[in-house]
Design a protein around this nucleic acid. Structure first.
Lengths: 344, 344
DNA sequence: ATGAAAGCGCTAACAG
DNA sequence: CTGTTAGCGCTTTCAT
């Protein structure tokens, strides 16, 4: 691509490559006379010179590239936002990102680490979707940054969503609207899904603060898709009137979508008869439901930014405790006061 | 990262770096004695040697990297699939991809092209979402490949979805089920949205083939989101019984989602009272609707693969006519025969 | 104020 | 069969 070399520019300007280098890189350009500088710049411009970063990298031992190892880029819309955050920071600081997708395969992960090391990337981000606790792969550079996951035994900077606080925010939204019988439609496997337990902690904490005794019947588990949510909420609506929830906090927006269906099938109007809060702020779901869904947003863009800032040394971080990124509540129209008929 | 150099391995094995290079790269390894080869490999292994690709690239003038310039990576789930397709092919052929997001900004695009040229990438993919006709940016390498867009005046290989055939497939699905009054809920701006006109062509073609005279009242335009779809379908359902459609083909799945809402509000059951076909196979919508939506899939993964294959010279391509990638119909449960009450 | 020269780590002729 | 040598294009002392 870049056909013209620095020596061509040097020849055209009648100077040495050393001079061209200094002028163009800005370093030590105070030692070069203004006339020469101008001459060099003109020559470079005229020749359409663009520096060869490969040669520069070999010499300087810095490539201005950072590797991003991700277990998926296609299966969730969140991956893209994370990538965008990381990318934006990299770009603003003159770095390029090399993206490697591993499909969650250990062998591919190993190869990715090797390939990135070979490319002499200046930093690496290690991303695994869904706020997981993961074993750091062998060979991962000591200065890697974990994204949306944290290493089993610490030792690396990491950033994950603050799911406990998010669960609290969702529940608080419902409590503030006047609800006292608030169900939590949870994910099935609390062990695998760190977020599940954390959001539940937030839920219970807010109930406690509000002086509400949690009703075990109002904590149900289901598959994390729309049909799971629908089935779970149908079960909830089958409870006798005095135990039936007036509000439901769903583990995610897909389940909330199912909750809508369940409510509609009973002829219930949201939020008049039933209030619903989701989690994820899943684009193309949350805002498109009718009525639009009040939910808690996952801060993937911000996490991507944070991780890249740490990786580039623009920000300090703790290597033992992961940063908990805030999950803000997004208020839309699925929360209202409990129906008056529901004697509290 | 890679601390140990080839000279270290050479010293350990008691050979020259030239020998190490040949053995490890495989090239001309038939000229090296098996014993020496074994010795070299052991030494490399023992030392944990990993070649420095920057040095190799400088020497060979090939970096085994390809740049992917995209106007977005975050705002649609399709971008991720495209990226995944391109990435998979690159990986399988020993290439790494450098991703640059431009946010559809010309200045960033210019910088991206420069940066990638500086990195000496072996190829570049130029992606713009939503099947657009775009002006090729200045400085774009002649061997770039256009992805999900095509250059105004040709001259580059390009791949876009075959929207005309997709529109035909959707309509055919409905015709095959027995429908004759089939509405097309279209996007608002036919000029901007190439796909809109093409899908309509497919729609009209299939109607013609089936001997159905298109009713202009059944071609409506609306905003491409759920509320647009809902409003449009409500209008359609307001038509007098004998002109009312028994099936609706929506420009996209979000609009189809709105069509569901419109139907439900009238107490209509899908597909018994109204059949619906969408477009996009938007994850988390199409399959989660109740009943699951029959739709036409956008082949982003395949387009990503194709573009990368062309870019790496693994596949021939035409520089004048873009490849039209098939959009397969995904059959789910939103299509049935027309209601018997609808006298055809 | 500018240039000469060395060298980043590797590969590829060419010798031997 | 294997080693020597000459760079790839750039940056960076060190001289002048």
């Amino acid at each position: 691509m870049a056909r013209v070399r620095m020596s061509d520019v040097a020849a055209a300007a009648g100077v040495s490559t050393a001079t061209v280098s200094m002028v163009l890189s800005g370093a030590g350009s105070d030692r070069i006379s203004p006339q020469t500088q101008a001459r060099v710049r003109e020559a470079a411009e005229a020749a359409g010179y663009a520096p060869n970063s490969v040669a520069r990298s070999l010499r300087t031992q810095r490539t201005r590239t950072v590797g991003l190892i991700s277990d998926t880029i296609a299966t969730t819309p969140f991956a893209g936002r994370m990538l965008a955050g990381a990318n934006d920071v990299a770009r603003d600081h003159g770095h390029l990102v090399i993206l490697v997708n591993t499909d969650d395969d250990a062998e591919q992960e190993r190869k990715a680490i090797l390939a990135l090391a070979g490319q002499q990337v200046d930093a690496v981000l290690y991303a695994r979707m869904w706020h997981r606790v993961v074993d750091a792969p062998a060979g991962l550079p000591a200065d890697a940054v974990f994204l949306d996951c944290r290493p089993t035994h610490g030792g690396w900077p990491a950033v994950v969503p603050d799911d406990r606080r998010g669960g609290a925010a969702a529940t608080r939204e419902l409590v503030a609207a006047g609800h006292r019988r608030i169900a939590y439609v949870d994910a099935p496997n609390p062990e695998d899904v760190v977020a599940s337990g954390l959001r539940r902690q937030g839920y219970l904490q807010v109930l406690a603060e509000a002086g509400i005794t949690p009703d075990p019947a109002l904590h149900v588990r289901a598959a994390t898709d729309a049909s799971g949510g629908r089935a779970a909420v149908e079960g909830l609506l089958d409870l006798p009137a005095e135990r039936r929830p007036t509000a439901v906090f769903c583990f995610n927006d897909r389940m909330a979508m199912g909750a809508y269906t369940a409510a509609h099938r009973r002829g219930l109007v949201i939020p008049d008869d039933l209030s619903i809060v989701g989690y994820d702020d899943q684009q193309l779901i949350a805002s498109e439901l009718d009525p639009p869904l009040t939910t808690v947003a996952l801060p993937h863009y911000e996490m991507g930014r944070w991780a890249m800032e740490v990786a580039l040394g623009l920000r300090e971080s703790d290597r033992d405790d992961p940063l908990l990124m805030n999950c803000p509540i997004i208020r839309r129209d699925s929360v209202g006061p409990p129906p008056v008929t529901a004697g509290n």
